[in-house]
Design a binder for these strands. Structure first.
Lengths: 258, 258
DNA sequence: GGTTGCGTTGCATATGATGCAACTGGCGGC
DNA sequence: GCCGCCAGTTGCATCATATGCAACGCAACC
């Protein structure tokens, strides 16, 4: 109907149902309506997915996400050394500062969260971030941090795909102002997100380096404006930088700080 | 070829490729060989999966698991209250005891790990358990714990599916001996896995109750025989029981210990 | 006891997934 | 530099496969 029409119909339908089932339990009738197909068609798709444990049938007859998906995900995440090494330091940082802490990594052409430590307290405002989700490459502290330290040609390649969008008044929404910001980041060694994607969300981020000294990830602290202002975040900046350096160290980076 | 043949072919092929891609990077040719189909067929499947971010194309042209899967998984895990409440106590327990700690839950007809805290140290022997993976219902400490406290008809329903298999000499491989073991577990309030699935893997597990007092999950400590004997595990038992009770408390269970 | 709504099964059909063959492009050997 | 090889990609004709239909089972509700 729209878009590239070389893709497999039934697989797309299956993906669609998986996504829906992940959100809330899905009845067969609902599944059929969502896809705009006959119930028998939806049934066959769901049965196939069930046999793969991608969805699971509840006692009530509805379908929800199955453990097969979770298992695959852990297989992928578990194989990331970075995540292993970073887990403990990030949790310490969270406890010391009280801020929500994120770990993000360049994976292919996108920057995705690979770990997140929430404030244990009842946050009235839960951050919408989620492990596995891609984050804006130019309108986030972790994105800009990774971008800042990327080799030029790699950065150009990534940004050539990007269509800039001005999410908020502070967004760096064109290549020139973004490049200037990246220079600043390299000079000071850390990045700020001053509500550049969501007005109320402030972050600071610091680079994490592998054994060859290349920046492969970034750690960040986040605050909702009403809870902690950007200045408060900056108060905790030394701890963040320490944490990032510590993780780099675990990865084999021999720090030569200047 | 075998089994029920009402399932969608292309979706099963897609699932197969996702699984392979999760294990190691998959070239197009390899994908086609694995499925026994033409390369163009494999290409279309992979492109469809790529558009859903279930797989991702690397610079080298191979396909690996994509962030879409991870995102879905976190969505499912994140919605589990139990996991949230249990995270901190389990990590404390790990630090106090040094043992690998697991959290398992009855989900549909299977018991799956929903959290795991590894020993931070270099375990020469990594446990094969993984979040999302199903664990034996009758040959594991967490499985037997949950089974022991299930309402009779529910337990019968679950065990009616089961074909008992004697993994090791200590396995409770028939309904009678298992039932006797479950009685013991109820009497003492915790369970042991004395190498019943893998000769070298020892566990102790304790039940976790929800606000209505129903056992919905179990926490366990694991040891490889060479590192910590079962007796050593039992030394830490009071801490495990405390932890499980604490989690139950967070879930709203008002403990009446006897 | 009829009626409604949901899930399931068998079957005929045509749609959409498939394999083929031709094309591209990069790499290495000669 | 040329050639051949191998991996990936594209267009198209074919038919296997996913699909919709209609009939059925079943429970809940009036």
């Amino acid at each position: 109907m729209e878009g590239d029409i070389a893709l497999s119909q039934s697989i797309r339908r299956a993906v669609d149902l998986i996504r829906r089932a992940a959100e809330h339990p899905l009845s067969l009738t609902e599944a059929a309506e969502v896809l705009g197909v006959h119930k028998s068609t939806a049934l066959r798709i769901l049965q196939t997915l069930e046999s793969a444990r991608f969805v699971r049938r509840t006692g009530a007859g509805t379908y929800v996400l199955g453990s097969g998906i979770i298992e695959l995900s852990e297989l992928a995440l578990g194989s990331m050394d970075l995540r292993q090494f970073a887990a403990a330091p990030l949790r310490t940082l969270q406890r010391q500062t009280g801020h929500t802490v994120h770990l993000a990594q360049l994976t292919g052409d996108e920057i995705i969260y690979i770990d997140k430590v929430d404030s244990p307290a009842f946050d009235a405002v839960k951050l919408p971030s989620r492990i596995g989700r891609a984050v804006s490459i130019y309108a986030s502290a972790v994105g800009k941090t990774i971008l800042a330290y990327l080799p030029t040609e790699e950065r150009d390649r990534l940004l050539s795909h990007v269509v800039f969008e001005r999410f908020t008044p502070t967004t760096y929404a064109d290549r020139e102002s973004l490049d200037a910001e990246l220079v600043r980041i390299r000079e000071q060694g850390w990045a700020v997100d001053n509500g550049e994607h969501d007005t109320y969300v402030m972050c600071v981020a610091a680079p994490i380096r592998d054994s060859r000294g290349r920046v492969i990830a970034a750690a960040s602290m986040t605050a909702i404006e009403v809870i902690a202002s950007l200045d408060q975040l900056k108060d905790s900046l030394p701890l963040l930088l320490d944490t990032a350096n510590q993780i780099s160290g675990e990865l084999g980076h021999t720090a030569n700080l200047g």
